[in-house]
């Protein structure tokens, strides 16, 4: 039977602390709202895993088929720049974690600064990526737009052609990753403006926490991309 129990509900309200302005009224409690948002974010990350999963599936397949082409093409990438970018991204992730901490401990200035640092390193990553891409253009390693198998003569023509599928995956995977970074960077600018207004340091930290999850997810994708794309069969180099 549908019974409303006004006594019980009222009691709950009395226990509740002060209402946040961000509390939406279709949620019974702020706790429920926070849990729903975080659960939603995790689900969204699950869809992202499936999205990148298609690319990782393709990588698995083609690397099995054309390992020599993958090894040879992989060795044209600059491990130094890749490693530098990995370090930059981990630093950026650390700043993001600090930003979440600043929001939780209600430090407005620190939050804005850490978000700024996160963004700085995010942009630095993209700058390095730009130079890597430019090098690929210069070396004619971009399938479809500017490609030549001149660098892979040792493989034989057939296998050398297969390096194109490696570069296709390289650009698709790092490109999708970079796209996620760009979206993240735009969002951070918006969060910085809002954080500066003090929106996230009065107890309403869910957006920062959830954005942090997204940012760390993008980091983790890179943590998988770096070894798979840059560090194949180093002994053969």
């Amino acid at each position: 039977m549908v019974v409303t129990q006004p006594g019980e509900l009222q009691e709950e309200h009395e226990h509740e602390h002060v209402h946040l302005p961000q509390h939406r009224h279709h949620f019974e409690t702020e706790e429920q709202q926070r849990e729903a948002a975080s659960f939603g974010m995790w689900l969204f990350l699950l869809t992202e895993i499936m999205f990148f999963g298609g690319l990782f599936m393709a990588y698995l397949l083609y690397r099995n088929w054309y390992n020599p082409a993958f090894v040879a093409a992989s060795h044209t990438l600059s491990i130094k720049l890749g490693a530098l970018n990995t370090a930059i991204l981990i630093t950026s992730g650390f700043c993001m974690a600090m930003a979440v901490w600043a929001a939780e401990t209600r430090k407005r200035k620190a939050l804005v600064n850490f978000l700024g640092l996160t963004n700085f390193f995010g942009i630095a990553f993209l700058v390095v990526k730009y130079f890597e891409y430019a090098e690929k253009w210069h070396d004619s390693h971009i399938p479809g737009l500017k490609f030549s198998i001149a660098d892979f003569g040792k493989l034989g023509v057939d296998m050398a052609q297969k390096t194109q599928v490696y570069y296709s995956l390289y650009f698709a995977m790092t490109g999708m990753h970079a796209l996620h970074m760009i979206i993240g960077i735009v969002l951070i600018f918006w969060y910085m403006v809002r954080a500066n207004r003090g929106e996230f340091t009065e107890g309403y930290v869910a957006p920062i926490e959830n954005f942090g999850l997204y940012w760390h997810f993008v980091d983790i994708v890179w943590i998988f991309l770096f070894p798979l794309l840059y560090l194949i069969d180093l002994g053969a180099k």
Binding site: L61, Y62, W65, Y66, K162, T163, Q164, V165, S168, A172
Partner: peptide, 14 residues
């Protein structure tokens, strides 16, 4: 659009 070859047999795709 740009000719990536993940599904193009000529470039090693399937």
């Amino acid at each position: 659009t740009i000719g990536l070859g993940v599904f193009d047999p000529a470039k090693g795709g399937d």
